[in-house]
Design a protein around this nucleic acid. Sequence first.
DNA 1: CGGTGGTCTTAACATAGGTTGTTGCCGACC
DNA 2: GGTCGGCAACAACCTATGTTAAGACCACCG
Lengths: 255, 255
Amino acid sequence: MLPARLHPGGVEAASPGAEAQPLLRRLGRLATLSPAEQAMIAELGRGPLRELPARAEIHPEGVCPPPAALLSGWACRIRMLADGRRQIVAFLLPGDLIGRPPPCLPAPCAALALTRVLLADAQPLFAAGFVHHPPVQTGLGRALRAAELQEEILLRDQVVRLGRQTAYERLASLLLELRQRLEMAGLAQPGRFALPLTQEVLADALGLSVVHINRTVQQMRRDRLIELRGGQVIILQPEALQSVADWQDIPGLRD
Amino acid sequence: MLPARLHPGGVEAASPGAEAQPLLRRLGRLATLSPAEQAMIAELGRGPLRELPARAEIHPEGVCPPPAALLSGWACRIRMLADGRRQIVAFLLPGDLIGRPPPCLPAPCAALALTRVLLADAQPLFAAGFVHHPPVQTGLGRALRAAELQEEILLRDQVVRLGRQTAYERLASLLLELRQRLEMAGLAQPGRFALPLTQEVLADALGLSVVHINRTVQQMRRDRLIELRGGQVIILQPEALQSVADWQDIPGLRD
DNA sequence: CGGTGGTCTTAACATAGGTTGTTGCCGACC
DNA sequence: GGTCGGCAACAACCTATGTTAAGACCACCG
């Protein structure tokens, strides 16, 4: 609704369109984009944006949400059971896409802001990449398609974590996933990144209790694999962490 | 490789093209197909088929498998950890699609036949529905797209199961999922269907040990929710099972 | 300043589910 | 008809993780 320049707080928008940087970076890594496509993506950052505070619902469960791009802040897809148990299905990071172009089935989970978030309407992107041309034909189409496929891969990783890994392994694996994703969006220094998540959120993502997350974090600190304070993670021993987590890199796509 | 008519065993191929029935049924439920599209699908059953015995690998981990349609038999997507732990990520039922049209990222999990399976080359389908036209434009495109979206929904259900449900709830939920999917492919009588899975396979899917699967099955039998013998399940109390599992139907798409 | 609420931390105890090992059934194969 | 392998069933014991509860720290706010 409001133009971008009315949101001075938080986003350090030095150059115009800077809000779209992570999205541009990520999609640009997935396929070669034409200058026109790059411009279209950068334009999103100048278009009408939706700003939401932490804890706000981006879209509820059971609807078919319109395509949006997460420009800044963290969010998640979450599902709740009847008795209140919560499972975070996926984390959404700057540069990620929420919602699908039609035809679209009702989403089985809600999307929730974990921090203050800035959302842009991604309808034009999907229209250009998915609807007007077959996705294979354009760089943008291939990039959007690859983003979808990556999301599916992350979902499968999550299944393996929850199904067959111990608490310690799950935490290691999640941290490595977030690190790589943030790097792909240009938001992490090597070995160090911001993690604006409470232990309760981690618990809901990893299928554990808060108490046990705490135990596990303590242990990982004592083992000198990570440091975690004030919303910042430092990965002290990447190789050790990778071997604990049985980690394999998230594949990309270059045309 | 071999033409369909050289596979007399197992498939009761009364009319020609009968092998493609489940696929036709399922895609036809997802979108309205033109007669030409229906013919193209039926044609798959007459084209060169790939037959594999139980336990055979359909495709390994880490490759980009060509699109195939599972015409008969059960299979699964599975991922293995370095130390041999296995997690079944998804079950593949007759009428399901394996592999993706390019652009495609290396699959993070292998596909494994759980029974004898019959596979057809699905490249023509994806070419027509995805590559030559944008998926929205044709009925086939919409159906293929909906099938993909359904698969993603199943994956999210699986995450919730493994993350937040008890063994008993997981089993209930999986049985309901399989029931609905088999019904959508026209392969289940109401309240009763074939389940050609060993308890070990169930364990690998539900993130449990074989022993505990056995305990859980016994309990569910004692509670008179299901019968399970000789590869057949009878759901005795569907509503009770649904309330245990916190079940919601898998959404479909009708144009 | 002193509440108030959110988050992290720790401890004690409870339990769902894992592990190991044995038995019995049944169909396949010689 | 015997033997063998795969599978289901069951028991005894063990452990990872959940639950409940309470204190410490910190940010915010009146």
